[in-house]
Amino acid sequence: MNSKEFIAARVAKEFKDGDTVNLGAGLPNLAVKYLTPGTKIYLQAENGIVGFGPHDPEQPINPFCTDAGENPITINKGGAIVDSVTSFGLIRGGHLKLSVLGAMQVDEEGSIANWLVPGGKMAGMGGAMDLVCGAKKVIATMEHNAKDGSAKILKKCTYPLTGERVLSAIVTELGFFEVTPEGLVLREISPNVTVDEIRARTEASFTVDENLKEMTVN
C-alpha cells in the first residue's frame, strides 16, 4: 500500500453504515475501495446524484449518466437524481455526513486551500467551496509534505483559501489530526513514525492525544 492508498484506507474507516458521503476526485475517491464489507454508504455527486457506484464494464456507457468528473457511473438500485440546486442544498444544508477533499495546504485553524496555486491558472473552485460548508464532518486528505519536503500543515495557509475554519480532521500518511477549537490534536500516528518526526515535518503546532493510537487500516 503506498501512502495515498494508506490515507484512503484510513478515511474509509470513517464511513459508517448509512452515511451519505461526497468524495473529491483523486485520493478521496480511492477510499471507496477500502469500504468495510457489509457497510452501505450513499455516494453523492455535485452534478445531482445520490447513491451511485462505478460503471459496470458489462453495461453500455450512457452519456447521460456521469459523475462530477464526467466518468460513466451506475446509479444504485434506490438511487436518486436531483438538479444542481438540490444537489448543493444537500451539501450546504447539512444532509451529508462526510465530505472528503484533497488539499494543497491546511492550517491549525482548520482552514483549507485546494483550488489555486498563487500565480497559477485560474481554473476555478468548482464545488469545493460548497463542499467545505455544511457537511457534518469535513476531512482534508493529502500527503504530509510537498514534493520538495516543505510543510503543508501550516500555521496559516498561504495559498488562496477554499474555506476558512471549516475542517473537522486532516489525514496524512503520518497521522490523523482532529481539528478542535483549541487547535490540532494528533489522535493517531502511523506505524514506524515518531511524534518528533511529525513535528519536524509540520509547521503548525499541535498537541498529542494522551491516548494516542496507532493509525491502522482494514
Partner: peptide, 20 residues
C-alpha cells in the same frame, strides 16, 4: 483573461445554482 480580452467571474458551483 490576462490580456483583458475577456472578463472571468468565478462562482462556487452551489452558489452559482442558487444565484440563478
Amino acid at each position: 483573461v490576462d490580456e483583458g480580452k475577456i472578463e472571468l467571474e468565478l462562482c462556487p458551483q452551489g452558489s452559482l445554482a442558487e444565484r440563478i
